[in-house]
Design a protein around this nucleic acid. Structure first.
Lengths: 214, 214
DNA sequence: CGACCTGTTGATTCTGCTCAATCAACGTGG
DNA sequence: CCACGTTGATTGAGCAGAATCAACAGGTCG
C-alpha cells in the first residue's frame, strides 16, 4: 500500500544498502528492487542462485493445474529463498509490496554448503509448521495463528503491519478472501484486535490471541 | 496388517540387510527393526543423526497443543529423515507397519553436507507439494492425489498397497477418518478404483484418477 | 467525475465434521 | 467350539462452517 505508492520507480539496482548480515561464505552483491507484484523468478526457470530479502516482502507460490494458487511462504528481511531440489524452480517468487532482493553468490574458494544447509533446514521447519496450520480446520484459528506469527516476526509490536492483501492471505491459509474478511471481523467482535487501517492491525488482547492458537 | 502379524518380534537389529544404496560420504550401520506404532524418536529429543528407511513405512508427526495430530510425511525404502533446524526434534517419527531403519553416520574424514543438503532439499520439495494438497479444498481430490502419488511411488503398479490405516491417512490429508472412508467410496462408485482388500486398492481408471488431481 | 480495484457484508448452498449405529476381523477365555 | 470384547472400517443423520454468488462501500487514479 504505502510502500507501493512511494516506490513507483521501475526495477532499479541500489548500491550500498545493507540491511541484514551477509551469511558466511557468501559474497555481497547489489540489491535489486522489485516493484509490487513483479516476478522475481518463474516456475520452470533454471534454479541456481539463492536470494536474500533486504526489505519488503516476497511471496513464494505454486499454481495447480486447475488454476488454484497456493502461497507456500511470505519472506521478509533476512530470509533466504530460491532452494530447489531439481535444476528447475517448481515454485515462483514475486514481490508483494516492493521488495529489495540480493543475489547470494558463493565467495570464491569457499564451500558454503554448511551455511546453505542451515538455511534450507530453517525453511523446511517453517514449511512443516505451515502444514500444521493448513491441517487444522478452523478458519478463525488459522487467522489467529497467522497474526500471531506475523506479530512475533515483527518483534512483538502491538500493531501488526499486513504487507499483503486479503487475496494473498487467503491463498496462504487455504481459504477464500471473503473468509479472511470474516475471520478478521470475528477477531474484532471478540475484542482481540482492532483494525486501525486496512493493513495495520492492533492486537488488543495478545493473551486471547495466543490461546486461540493453542 | 500382514507385515505386522508376521513380524511379531521385539525390536531387533538385523545385520547385512542392504535394500537401498548408501548415500555418498555415509558409513553403513546396522538396520534396526521397529514394530508397528513404535516410536523412533520423540518430540524434544536431541537431533543429530539422520535415518534411512530400509523397508516398511515411517510416519513423521506433529501434535498441536489441542491434541490434533498432523502427519507431515510418510517415508518408504530409500527415504531419509531426521532433519532438524534446531538442536531438538520438533516432530516425532514412528514406525507405521513394522519398518527397518538404518542410522546414517558420516564417514570419517568426509564432509557429507553436500549430500545431506540434496536430501534436505528433496524433503523440502515434497513438503511444499503436500502444502498444495492441503490447501486445495475438496476431500475427493485430496484422496485421489494421495492414491496417485502412492501408486507412482510403488512403481505405477495397478494395485496400490496402503501400509497405513484410515486414521493415519486422515491426519495426513487434514480430514477425519470417516471422510477418508467416504472419499474411497466415492472413487469406488465412480468406477475409478476397487477395494480388493482393506489395504489393497486396485486402480481401474488411472486416467480419471490423474484428471481428478489435475 | 467516473472507472476500477480492494475489501466488507449478506444470502444461500454445499462440503465435510460430529455423533452414532453397524459390521467384519481377530483374539481371548470359558 | 462358541460367546464376548476389542479394534478398525463403513455408513447414516443432522448440523456447522466455509464456499459461492452477489451487492455494496471506500479509496485511488485516470
Amino acid at each position: 500500500m504505502h510502500i507501493q505508492s512511494t516506490f513507483r520507480a521501475e526495477r532499479t539496482t541500489v548500491e550500498g544498502t545493507r540491511v541484514s548480515a551477509m551469511p558466511a561464505g557468501m559474497q555481497p552483491a547489489p540489491v535489486t528492487f522489485y516493484p509490487a507484484d513483479e516476478l522475481i523468478y518463474a516456475q520452470g526457470d533454471t534454479a541456481g542462485p539463492l536470494y536474500m530479502v533486504e526489505f519488503g516482502t516476497v511471496r513464494i507460490c505454486r499454481v495447480s493445474a486447475d488454476g488454484r494458487r497456493q502461497i507456500t511462504g511470505f519472506l521478509t528481511a533476512g530470509d533466504v529463498f530460491g532452494f530447489e531440489a531439481a535444476g528447475q524452480h517448481d515454485s515462483f517468487a514475486e514481490s508483494v509490496d516492493g521488495a529489495g532482493v540480493r543475489v547470494l553468490r558463493p565467495a570464491t574458494g569457499q564451500e558454503p554448503t554448511a551455511t546453505i544447509l542451515q538455511m534450507a533446514l530453517r525453511c523446511l521447519a517453517r514449511t512443516q509448521q505451515q502444514l500444521m496450520l493448513l491441517g487444522c480446520r478452523s478458519a478463525n484459528v488459522k487467522m489467529a495463528s497467522f497474526l500471531f506469527d506475523l506479530s512475533e516476526q515483527q518483534g512483538d509490536r502491538r500493531v501488526v503491519h499486513l504487507a499483503m492483501q486479503r487475496n494473498d492471505i487467503a491463498d496462504y491459509l487455504g481459504m477464500t478472501f471473503e473468509t479472511v474478511s470474516r475471520t478478521l471481523r470475528f477477531l474484532k467482535d471478540e475484542g482481540i484486535v482492532r483494525l486501525k487501517t486496512i493493513s495495520a492491525i492492533e492486537i488488543l488482547d495478545r493473551r486471547a490471541l495466543e490461546l486461540m492458537c493453542e
